[in-house]
Design a protein around this nucleic acid. Sequence first.
DNA 1: CCGAATCTACGAAGCCCTTCGTTGACATCT
DNA 2: AGATGTCAACGAAGGGCTTCGTAGATTCGG
Lengths: 131, 131
Amino acid sequence: MSETKLPRPTDGELAILRVLWERGDSTVREVHEALNRNAPEGTGYTTVLKLMQIMTEKGLVERDESQRAHVYRARATEQKTQRQLVTDLVDRAFGGSPARLAMQALSAKKTSPEELAELRRLLDTLEGAEE
Amino acid sequence: MSETKLPRPTDGELAILRVLWERGDSTVREVHEALNRNAPEGTGYTTVLKLMQIMTEKGLVERDESQRAHVYRARATEQKTQRQLVTDLVDRAFGGSPARLAMQALSAKKTSPEELAELRRLLDTLEGAEE
DNA sequence: CCGAATCTACGAAGCCCTTCGTTGACATCT
DNA sequence: AGATGTCAACGAAGGGCTTCGTAGATTCGG
């Protein structure tokens, strides 16, 4: 089997992964510019480079070195990573109950009616699957 | 005003906070024993002590030194801390959408019908509050 | 061809988290 | 009082994350 057990990304690594998911495969420069577009005067170029090199060692990303400017790609999908982070948090802070996490999330931040409706549909599906 | 901005607890700190929430105010020894009850051969006594001293400096806990064995208490409620962790994760990994986090949580782990029903009631409340 | 720009690689520094050994104070038991 | 056990305090070590300066290779414009 392949590597299903990637390490939990740090805050900095997660920021980079978000860029890769949004933009698709990217060079260091592209990631660096994307990060500093919304947050001016953030991290330097070599900082991002180093981070991405480490992420490569960890297996969080992989890179194509055929061009001079290496092209990086996220190794896990956004969904998979989100799922990992969520189950992690559920276990560490919510006693293993995803429902309690869900309720805290919904109580803490305002949610649009569309998303509430979508959630309701998910609940229908889940309840339908019980037996 | 007081300190509403406590730092995000680390994994180790969170484990200690969980003991304090569950047991109520406790000494270092009590926390240490609680941690090693479920996970034998975990952390040493002085490790827990040091961690709790640092947590005191950070303001995550406060202590009563009137007894020889100091008594520690969590400074933020479990709910408040959970909310902080959740909104943090929503911002870092879910583009600010709590509903998407909620859906990932429910999809990732099996949830009991009772909790699903409870969630549904919460949805009712939230939708009722819209206008 | 030369200089400027771009890129990777490397290494070191600073900070935080975790771990633990040691020390000195205090308590308890005999 | 003396031995034993419990406690807080401290310091240091090790590892991980983040930051950045510098060096060396490659590319590009003139």
